[in-house]
Each structure stands twice: as C-alpha cells, then as structure tokens.
Design a protein around this nucleic acid. Sequence first.
DNA 1: AAGGTATCGTTGGCGCGGCCAATGTTGGTT
DNA 2: AACCAACATTGGCCGCGCCAACGATACCTT
Lengths: 159, 159
Amino acid sequence: MPTESTNKEAMPARVRDLPTWLLGRAAAHSHRLLAAGFAEAGAHGYHYRLLAALEEFGPASQAALGRHAGIDRSDVVAALNELAGLGHIRRTPDPTDRRRNIVSITPAGLRQLSRLDGVLARVQERVLAPLPEADRGPFLAALSRLAAGQEPPGAPGAP
Amino acid sequence: MPTESTNKEAMPARVRDLPTWLLGRAAAHSHRLLAAGFAEAGAHGYHYRLLAALEEFGPASQAALGRHAGIDRSDVVAALNELAGLGHIRRTPDPTDRRRNIVSITPAGLRQLSRLDGVLARVQERVLAPLPEADRGPFLAALSRLAAGQEPPGAPGAP
DNA sequence: AAGGTATCGTTGGCGCGGCCAATGTTGGTT
DNA sequence: AACCAACATTGGCCGCGCCAACGATACCTT
C-alpha cells in the first residue's frame, strides 16, 4: 500500500493545527482504510450505503433509495448498474407507477452486505485505535455535533 | 448556497453512527465552508497551502514546495500556474541547478495570504461553533491522534 | 571521463465522492 | 385537457489525491 500522501517534511504551522485540516486528514485516513477494505471485497462506498438502505428500509424506488443513502439520483443509477451486474440487487418495474423501478436486494446482495459489515467493523476499530476507550464516547459525541453542523445555544438559521 | 447533500430522510442505522461516517460528514461540512470562503477570495485549497508554505519556509523549488504542502508535484505545477497568473508567486530559474525553479511569493501573494488567513480563522470558528469551549481542546487532541493514525501504546511501525 | 541513477518540472491520466442540468416518460391536480 | 411534479437516465463538472512517463539536468560511482 503506497498511499501515504503528506510526505512528512513539516507542514506550514498555519495549516498543521487547523481544526479543518485535522478533520480533513483524519477523514482522509479513515477513507483510505475504508476504500481499501471495500476494494478487497470488490465494493465501493456507494455500494455499501445502497445495500444497507435496501436491507433496512426494504425495496424502494431508486429516487427513494438515493434519498435514504444520501446519494444523488444520477449516481444511484450507476451504482445500481454495478450492483445489478454483480447480482446483488434486482430492478423490477413498479406495477403501480410505471416511472419507478422497485429495487430489491438479492440473497447474494445480503451476503455481500454482511461481508461488508465485517469489513466496516474492522475499519472502525482501526480508525479509533489511537483513542483510549474512555475518550471515544465524548469524541464521537463531539464529532456528531460537528457533522450535523448544528449550533447548541441560540442557533440563527432558517426561521 | 444550494449544496446540502444528505437530504435528511433517515440514513441506514448501519451507517448513521459509524465513526468513519461521522468523520466523513464533519470533514465534508468543514470542507464546504472552506471552499465557499476560499471561492469568495478567488482561491482554492491548494493555493492557500502553497502560499503558506512559501511564506513560512521562504522561496523553494516546486518539488520542495510540494513536499511542504503535501501536494503532488504535478498538482503543484497547475496550482502554481494559477498563482502566477494572479501575480501571487514568481518562478525564477535556479542559477545553481538548472532543473529547478525557485518559487517565491510576491507582495500581492502575501496580501492574498493574509486575506485567506482571515477567511480561515472565520471558518474554524464556524466549524467549531457546535462545540462548547471546554470540549474543544480534548476534541482536537483526539482528532490529531486519529489524523496521525498513530497508536498510543506499543506501536508497530518502521523500526 | 563515462555511466548509471536520482531529481526536477511538466503533461496527461485515473479514481472517488459529490453536485447540477437536461431529456423523455408517467402520474396527479386543477 | 393542460400543467406541473416526480422518476430514471445521460452526460457533464469540480476538488482532491494519486500515478506513470517524458526530457533535461545533476550527482555519484566506477
């Protein structure tokens, strides 16, 4: 595994300790591990999200699926094509609405999903490894707040 | 500003709370703010990193610059072209090594850099806004460890 | 002195993840 | 009947991170 970007030769101080920089680096690192794990299982990030959404919410139209997985309609098409090619999902025309495809997960898809679940779990552990158990809860809680981009006190937003 | 990806319609539980997912989301959010801020100033991420490295380490060859900024040689070329077009940097042939260009930051580049510093500072504040002051230190410390991908106890690495 | 090796700048390409716009079809409202 | 909204699909764009190859130049051996 070559990838190790940031050839340590001292980043500018202005950048090195920026929260946004650290966030980016940490995310990049976790993404690398994730991608590597998925690649071994012959999957991509979108695949897992789609399979997970299918398993959890049951068969759905592509649009609904995209909404659940946070993936753009157009990207859903491509990913589903790949998943269909692998036999992990099936597209069925919706009899009640001819605009829609009903997408459902196949047994093979379910097997792949649980394989990926395993990969995922292992990666989570590796990513959090640098953190002592005790620190993880608070860290993840903080991370959630950042991820939501919400403000705790009086938040000025869209009234 | 349209971009708001994840149209909240419930992510799969399998994904929603994954550390890697939260990391990705938080980083994406911060990246969006960053990109927006930079865009207003007519800059890209690479531009800031390069200007910062130049200001901090002084004139350098493109290769060295790339190493300091964590940017691939080839991407340095493109970014420097843009910066040169804006008059923010200057390329001078190195008299002692004709393979090299000596890249230096111009007064205009310095002005741009401090403008971007302002943008950066504001973005940091917005990103951390959801976190009460007291939580930020520990959070950032944890984030640093994750970013480094280091393990705290006995770390197996390159002896 | 000559040869091989390493570095430098540059070009061109790839991948992932996230977006947007346009098209043709179909459904629901009015 | 006319309109507008939602659907699947195509095709394109961007940022960021990589990698391979090239010709030119420098450095280090033998």
